[in-house]
Amino acid sequence: MDTDLGWWAVPLALIGGAIRISTPFLFVSLGETITEKSGRINLGLEGTLIFGAMIGYGMAYLIGDAWAQAAINDAIAQGLPPPAVSARSYPMAAWLGVGIAAIAGSLFGVVHGLICSLKRVNDIAVGIAMMLFGMGIAFYFGKPFIAPAAPDLPSIPFAAWSDVSQVRDAFNVNALFIIGIVLAVVLWWAFRNTRLGLILRVVGDSADAARALGYNINLVRTLATAVGGAFAGIGGAFLSLYYPGSWNEGISSGQGLMAVALVIFARWNPIACFWAAMLFGGTSALGPALQAVGVTGGYYLFNAAPYILTLGLMVATSSRNRAMAGAPGELSITR
């Protein structure tokens, strides 16, 4: 049933957009929070995200395609008519793609972490160089995966009860989004209440204290960067395997870099990362939604809404005296 929503389409688009668009921001910023809590910054997550998008999509396609071929060959061997299957018939392959993207992302993280463990090496600079490398290698090996169609991650219809098709579609939620919310809560809790969280915070706040307590600073930071990279890889796989759901060289419009910045905005609080990602996702939907209901002028400015709003909120909530409350003491970017 199609219903004319009129202006109600705008709030619905903001909610739907927040759910659809926020997930990559959420994953990258959660991962980066872990990394930054340990006292390192990885600006290269944009490259990790793009590589995750490529490898997740490519592997999901190759695995799905292999399974489809196997099913067809089996049927032929048994003398049955070949089934009408393709790579897209196997959502499980998409989940494997997500897993592979996470592994690949963690490898990028390990490399970044190890390099930054060397004396006098600047983590910001290495991040930017790794960003270039990640994008380059993703585009280099990604050419053959632009044309094929990989399976999509399935979504959960949370509003199946609704008669309004637009509402049903807006609340088609991907499992990764829910996992992201759970992770945000778990991380928030773990940073305060677990030994691991404590170690992470000590290492991030004071290298001297960590050394005194006998922690291996470089090991902790490298592992934290690896986990951050894995999260960014998952964020990339969400882009290519769910929304917008295809691999091409323009798949990311800076989500990885922006998400790193959102961590500072969220003051290293995983729950705040979730709200920041929701805000960013929702307002990203504003421009197209407004045009759809007839607010047609100035769409460049409406499309810039996420940036303007985030900046406004930062200015409003910051103050000179508690400039960097919550910032890990060892973090190069806020020192």
Binding site: Y307, I308, V315, S318, R320, I333
Partner: peptide, 15 residues
């Protein structure tokens, strides 16, 4: 205002 310049300059670039 104590706003981190890394994020504000990036946001300003998009604007």
């Amino acid at each position: 205002r104590g706003v981190n310049e890394t994020i504000s300059s990036l946001l300003l670039a998009y604007v």
